[in-house]
Amino acid sequence: MSFKMEEKIISKDDLLKLCGDVIAKGHTLLAPGIAEYEQVKDVSQIRLDSSALPTKTSYKSYVFPKAEPILYYKRSKSDVQLIDVDVNGKKIVVLGAKPCDTNSINILKHLFNWDYEDEFFNLRQKHFVIIGLMCSSFDEYCFCTSVGSSPVSEEGSDLFLIPINEDKFALRIITEKGKEFIEPYSEFLKDGDEAKSNAVLESIKKPEVAFDSKQVHEWLGDNFENPKWEGIGNVCLSCAQCAFVCPVCHCFDLVDEDYSYSEGRRMKNWDGCQFGHFTLHASGHNPRDIQSKRYRQRVNHKFRYYVDKFGEILCTGCGRCSRGCPVSIDIKEIVSNCKD
């Protein structure tokens, strides 16, 4: 299903009015705040700053919550009764999503619809409208251009904003979903000039390509046993900061929480492959018993296994994991070193 992109213009004031209406309708409006994507209560909170670096966390938790009940149960001596969870499929509009975030849901879709269709994820993502915003700055941890994306990528956005001047944005309608969302606000839109906004996109400085992902893929296949992993394993402290701030890391654990003997619920909680007990078997055996094996798994999963399975790199190049790492492990540097 191909959709022909439409180029429009919207003033900043009208865009904020639109946002006000989204809030008034009771939808959830998310926008990048200082540390995270915050729920906007008042449009004056909205910054729409294309030069802001990625927030500390992505909006992953709104489509794949950090802890969510997936069923409730009641137990008696003779019977177990299961009670479904009503998933809150509330509309969520993300305004000003970074291009390194916009494609995250598309990347995650593969996993959550592979051997089992995850109705929780699917229902939530169906109600997501993503309004991307071109990104005009980067720091030493950004590497979107090395994983096939760019600061001007429209991939994953339903609508895409390009700042033309102080008070005006070019607004591109990228998907059918985006068109449906924007239609009620057509009074705010004027026809745009694609060539003009393309010129803005071309003028954007982009991070240099740090590595060739195809070569990395190949190297990983040949270097499962390589002393380089040990060096990383010595420094990494085995927390899950990197996985939990990652827009596409998706490992989870299923645990039952009993309120009492007769009642409880099953939870789906974020889990991280750097935890020592992540692969601990009931027998006591642990196939990834040391940190170097765990870090190797992280890099392989992102740059080899996911590519083999789903044809996409499990990384958007946002650099969050590196920026936040307590021991300053830089994934860009490590992946760039995945060569002989």
Partner: peptide, 18 residues
């Protein structure tokens, strides 16, 4: 809190094996 346990990982006195 997202329970990433970075607080535990960086703490020199959080050395419990399990």
């Amino acid at each position: 809190c997202i329970k990433c346990y970075a607080c535990r990982a960086v703490c020199p006195l959080c050395y419990c094996q399990r």
